[in-house]
Simulated scan of single mutants.
Amino acid sequence: MIVVTGATGNVGRALVTQLAAEGVPVRALTRDPTRADLPAGAEVVRFASAAEPAAMAAQFEGATALFLHVAAGGEHTAELLAAAREGGVRHVVVLSSIILDHDDSAAHPIHVMHTRLEQQVRDSGLDWTFLRPGAFSTNSLQWVPQVRAGDTIRWPFTQSLTAPIHEADIASVAAVALRDPERHAGAVLSLTGPVAVTAEEQLQAVGRALGREFTVVEIPPHEVTPDMFPHVPQEMLPALLESFGAAVGSEPDLTTTVADVTGSPARTFEQWAKDHADDFRAAE
């Protein structure tokens, strides 16, 4: 049995879907099972926090592996890992961040958060595999309000370069590591998409997927409003904008990890845009 935290998130949902399709026993933890809308082959269980020690322990009974999202345990990650180990889990695959590959970013809030997470996992006594993806293609969903409003998109640092990765590719690597723990225990896997693309190129790819053409307007950072980054905590926004600026004209490191681990090439951003075209369309 594989337990997946963050099961209704982008990566978690893709992972649960893949495992269930392959007939792998999977238990999806979510705070509201009634709204999870996960595949029938998955066992959907209410996520229990450290405030409910008995329920927390029960959700890991019979499990041998765990997919751990950074937000799952929060301040109680150590307790969650202890409960997993007591329930039978021996191997944990951690969704971390590629920012940990760069020591010069040690003060960045995301670096601090994931460094702490990885250390807690190392201290847990469990075998582990760390997945360190770069920019998520799903970050582009922050453009949904502007895309639905019209064909002019205002954005800072439109020429910033990233190698965004499809959530299904992260899930595919996680699935391999979870099913074959002996081979991947102790591995640190940095994941990127196959090519570097600018923010403007990503927007135009979304436009092509929708059969539209966007006018992309560069705005200065001081014109950025919080609603443009609805999923970014306000305290992290300055650091995020700084990283966008640093990525202008700077080619990101590309990895072949997705292909190396899964045997299939990483999906392009163009493919991601086609897969998610309906997410950008307004409800009719």
Rank of each mutant, 00 (worst) to 15 (best):
L191M: 11
V188E: 08
A209F: 09
M236K: 15
T215V: 06
V216Y: 08
T192Y: 06
A163K: 07
P226K: 13
D180M: 08
P181G: 03
V248I: 11
I219L: 09
D180Y: 11
R179T: 03
T162I: 02
I165Q: 06
V232T: 15
G211S: 10
F229P: 02
P252T: 02
V217F: 09
S172R: 15
V217I: 15
D151S: 08
V195L: 05
P230M: 08
T257P: 00
G211H: 07
Q142M: 12
E213M: 00
A239M: 13
A246H: 10
W143E: 01
V224H: 13
V216S: 03
E251M: 10
W155S: 05
S264F: 06
P181I: 08
D260E: 14
S190M: 09
V258E: 01
A239D: 08
V248E: 14
W143D: 07
A259Q: 12
F244G: 02
Q234E: 10
P252D: 04
A171F: 12
A239T: 10
L191Y: 11
S160C: 02
D169Y: 14
L237M: 13
E251K: 09
E167F: 13
E218I: 05
E235V: 12
T158N: 12
T198P: 01
A171Y: 05
H184N: 02
E223S: 13
P238G: 07
A163T: 03
P181E: 09
T225C: 06
A187E: 15
E201Y: 03
F214K: 00
V216N: 06
Q202C: 15
W155L: 12
A199K: 11
A209E: 08
F244Q: 15
A163M: 02
D169P: 06
E242N: 10
E218S: 13
A168D: 10
G263C: 00
S264Y: 10
V248R: 03
L203F: 05
P194H: 09
D180S: 14
F214V: 09
D253C: 08
P220L: 12
L189C: 01
L203M: 05
Q159C: 01
S243R: 15
V224S: 11
A163W: 13
A239K: 13
D227R: 09
R154N: 13
E200D: 06
D180E: 15
P238A: 10
R212E: 04
G207W: 14
T215P: 00
E242V: 02
W143F: 14
L254H: 05
H222K: 05
A239V: 04
A175I: 09
T158A: 15
V248L: 04
F229C: 03
P238I: 04
